[in-house]
Amino acid sequence: MLEVKISELAEQMKSGKSKNERIQAALDLGSIKAKEAVDVLVEQLLVEEDEVVREAIVTSLIKIGDEYVANRAAGLLESEDAYVRNAGVEILSIIGEPAIEILQKMINHPDRDVRILAVNALGESHIRETIRYLRRVIMEDDDENVVASAIEYLSELGFEKEDKEVVMKAAKRFSSPFFQYTVKSAIEKMADL
């Protein structure tokens, strides 16, 4: 019964008579907490060209917001399409806790652009472990852009002396003016630690 409903809504979302009907179907799929609903939403997001239907799909994925969504959203970070990548970041950061395990993996992804997106998702999230992961990225990642992103977030989130020390130590890791400026700004923000 549920499968029928999902496939009906999926069909409406793909080829509904009007745009409103397609938007409504995408939003209605967000009320069904089932893997099959997540799959049809993600598959459609990858091919969807209408901006509003895309937004409805992202909204629904956030609404379902479980670990399965997090895993599928992590895959979006590797997309060639900037909208899809950003949607992945947004979904992962907003759903929070269910995304923690996959984000932990994504900060070790071989592609540095994906790692930056994972850091963005962590930094924007409400996940408590964020600080620990940001520190690890700052100390261990070998790409200065990834480390700089993590420093920016840690300067906002860090309230421990140790956070500031991690940033100060990182200053020695890369010498480019961009990186040094990022470190300087972060330390200024953390002046009272």
């Binding site: 938007i23 939003l27 509003v52 937004e55 409805a56 992202v58 909204t59 956030i62 609404k63 917001g65 907003i94």
Partner: peptide, 9 residues
Amino acid sequence: DASRRQVAL
């Protein structure tokens, strides 16, 4: 965030 997006739609 999520509700705001939904209302906008």
